[in-house]
Design a protein around this nucleic acid. Structure first.
Lengths: 113, 113
DNA sequence: GGCATATTCAACCGAAAGGTTGACGATTGC
DNA sequence: GCAATCGTCAACCTTTCGGTTGAATATGCC
């Protein structure tokens, strides 16, 4: 998987990871706090964070025994440009984004993900 | 994988499938013609097309014994909107897209994908 | 009818994804 | 120093992915 688009899209293909990104949109978080709302082990979340990190979608910085996770939205730019070549989508539509985010988070809650 | 974002991003995570979409950007194509430039079996390409089709990224219409594949760029809209929520990217930048496409196709040719 | 063409199906394979558990290495607080 | 906390590692398991091959199923051509 040399192409960064491979890793970025693969990282985005998992609902847990998208939910994590949405959480980090609010604020930086420690690994344990990221894991808290999910019904899966801390180790599993740690793996998801590694995948997001390798895709460049987040950065992680250790301060003391706490590792902070930070969203890196720039990693999405290449993927965004690639996708936009396939159609003239509305430039930026944050209202629509909010709606999608709501649906995503609701689904996560329902599925207990 | 209920969420359409899951299937769309997963479909985009494979370089062969992205190359197929780029080809279909030019024109509709028959399955055999889609498969021609790739160094893999027709059956494998057929599977990739099924995945793209299930993701809604292409549609397939059988005319006679030939099955035509058509790009469906609308399927990217939801994913595009989701991504754009993470940063205010330049609206639409077709020049940048062309460059990415070139790199993608060059890599495919080199790797023989 | 009979053969070539177009596409999928089915069975199989190795590798990777996504999860678990338990042990381990740091770091902090008392 | 010692116990609790934070996070990862390692081993394992099951399912999915991406590919192969060979047979099967249309359809078109003469």
């Amino acid at each position: 998987m040399a192409d960064p688009l491979d890793t970025v899209f693969a990282a985005l293909a998992d609902p847990t990871r998208r939910a994590i990104l949405a959480m980090l949109l609010e604020d930086d978080m420690a690994v344990t706090d990221v894991a808290e709302p999910f019904e899966m082990s801390l180790a599993a979340i740690s793996k998801h964070l590694t995948i997001l990190s390798r895709a460049g979608l987040i950065s992680q910085e250790r301060r003391g025994r706490v590792k902070w996770c930070k969203l890196e939205p720039d990693a999405l730019r290449a993927a965004s440009v690639w996708m936009q070549g396939f159609g003239q989508f509305e430039p930026v539509n944050l209202d629509a984004f909010e709606r999608f985010l709501e649906v995503e988070l609701k689904e996560d809650a329902e599925s207990g993900a």
